[in-house]
Design a protein around this nucleic acid. Structure first.
Lengths: 220, 220, 220, 220
DNA sequence: AATGAATGAGACTTCATTCAT
DNA sequence: CATGAATGAAGTCTCATTCAT
């Protein structure tokens, strides 16, 4: 990512290390230059590796980019998956955790968000995303909707149906990402979490008490 | 775009007609191929014009793309601007109109949305967007927030402060666009409007009565 | 040549006027930009005419350039031709006049010299020059050599043979042009004439007395 | 340059070798086609290399052309510089050597001279020449003038002042180059050297005895 | 006679990929 | 494993020429 003062480690490294090096460099490059200017020279340069290395580990540039998108998607999937699988948490905590995962400091990195939108802007990667990765989105929507039903069953029925609320939560979440990316001074991760809390709060005030920001950390 | 066997008529046309022809072709091309694959050959071919025409009317490809983004932004700006300026409308009607403008059939075209996100995905056009066009977003946010304050003054104070609700509305709106683009079968314009209505409804039930979809057309 | 504040004379003009307008603009353009950057747009723009005009008067760019070179050559040819034909002058005066013609203020213009060398630098115009115009050079060389023989016959035989001296005079003349073009601060027309005078002086001191610059104007 | 049916060997070569290959091809191309028709395809084709190679070694065509002009200038500079630095030579020998260097068989190549004038004909390369290389010309003029003063001090004072004679020598030299280029049948290297000898001879007959061509090789 | 919008071949340049080392 | 010189297809841009007006 920087001008690497230290001599590059020319020696062999485990396959996975090299792959991750290249994926990280790809994220930064797409973030800063966009897909259309993310050249192999730039990416491998940032990784401190030679241009020929891509052929070795990914066969082609297209594969590297797809691996990068897959990596981002899986990283997020694992994060909320772990929370959802945590038996120690109640449905409200799970819901808040699953929704909030996208705003964790190491997930909603400035460059990672830019990279996500870089891919979303290109038809061919949208197609790839739908084919390979969109299942994760379906899963999360299903999980969120199920958790909303759990909450509803456990108290007063909400004004909106869970399906609709799921859609609102997912889309608000995505829109907050876009806001964070385009106008970081207007939308920051804290504000984003508060907007999501407010949405939940308006339907489940008992579980997501309105007002106190502090309450966000102690979902009941 | 068509397989015209006959040589082009080479008829001169007003400068504005040619510019719009090219902008339209650019929208479609970026939508279908992404910025990185939107070549001059492809764009001018879709416009049914020669490749040299771009230099004549826009000087460079970059200018054409910037003009395209500007065109999209201005089109939207004019749409909600007209609603906001309509003296016959009350604050709730204005609010609903301003927010809903982004989902009009000729604004939230499949290709136009894809084109928007194509630009958002490229760092250099994000920068251009911020420099040249972002003022429109600030204006709209200010307008929405002011209308929310009008509504609040006119009835029971809302649970959330107008600034926060503005952010939620804007971001939900953007997120719904992304949803419509990525998963058109999951989010369609009607669903999008309903999600926005629900959000307003939860804070101003008197003005945006919950439940009836039909009510959306008769905001009080 | 300038930005023409006055509205261009759109009305018809005699064919020769238009041709000369274009040739003059061509000279300036080649002088300032070189043959490789002398575009039709630039040339016709400097002439205050439309780009389509060239086709009308010269058929093609190549013809215009050739006409320009021919014009320059004929202008010079006429100048020394008139001097040579002047029955009132003696051989020394003719010699000095023929040689000096190339340094007249309106012949050795900065831009005309630059244009000459612009053509000499391009193989295809060198070829054209040899075909069409070089006869003028042969003529002048023959004239100079004949005049040198006249002078020699009329006094002490010179140390060098006329053929060699002709070559020296012609080449020194050309070299002085190059010097004037490349280093105008080092070689100016006065210096150029003095160098030529000195060369003649060293072989015909009686006719071209050494020393006095003033003497140059009163060749005997 | 040849019709090689077999694919190129694609063997790597030292950077300097490739640069020289390209410079040589550039000289020939400019010589034969002129600057305006010296295309990358033509140049790299003559070098037997791919078109992409220029970007690798020179970044741009303009850089390649400037490197070519610089190469020509340095080659000449080194040639006369070596002679001038030769302690074994007397002033007359040095003078003759320095002036004659420009007519050495491998310096005054037909193509190299054509290339020189190709550059002189283009305004932007004249400018570059003045900026980067003209110092060489100043140096040589200074060296020649100093040598002329040495000769004058060592014998009878010459009729012309050294400064003027330097200008005559330099310009005659340049003009002879132009003559050799334009009319190779009229001016050849031998004739050129003889014209220069005659000029020196007319001022320093003792050092440059008139008449004998053979004497040119045994300057005293 | 004159204009200038439009064309498209061809120029320079970029960059993914290859492959000898 | 890893490098990076070399390739050449494909991109953007320039500009001489055409032709309806």
């Amino acid at each position: 990512m920087d001008g690497d003062q230290t001599p590059r480690p020319r020696r062999t490294a485990p396959k996975e290390v090299r792959r991750q090096q290249l994926i990280d460099a790809t994220i930064d490059t797409i973030a800063e230059l966009g897909v259309s200017r993310a050249t192999m020279t730039e990416i491998t340069g940032r990784a401190g590796l030679s241009i020929g290395i891509v052929n070795l580990h990914f066969d082609s540039k297209d594969n590297l980019l797809k691996a990068t998108l897959t990596h981002l998607a899986e990283e997020l999937r694992l994060r909320w998956g772990a929370i959802h699988a945590d038996a120690a948490l109640g449905p409200a905590q799970k819901l808040w955790g699953v929704i909030g995962a996208a705003f964790d400091a190491d997930i909603a990195t400035r460059n990672k968000m830019r990279c996500w939108f870089g891919f979303f802007g290109e038809a061919r990667y949208r197609a790839f995303y739908r084919e390979m990765v969109a299942a994760y989105d379906d899963e999360r929507a299903a999980v969120v909707e199920a958790l909303l039903r759990d909450l509803a069953a456990d108290g007063a029925p909400p004004a909106v149906d869970p399906h609709a609320l799921t859609q609102s939560l997912e889309c608000l979440s995505d829109g907050l990402w876009l806001g964070m990316m385009l106008y970081p001074d207007w939308v920051d991760p804290d504000a984003a979490r508060q907007r999501l809390w407010e949405l939940l709060s308006s339907h489940f005030p008992a579980r997501f008490p309105p007002g106190a920001t502090a309450a966000m950390d102690s979902v009941r």
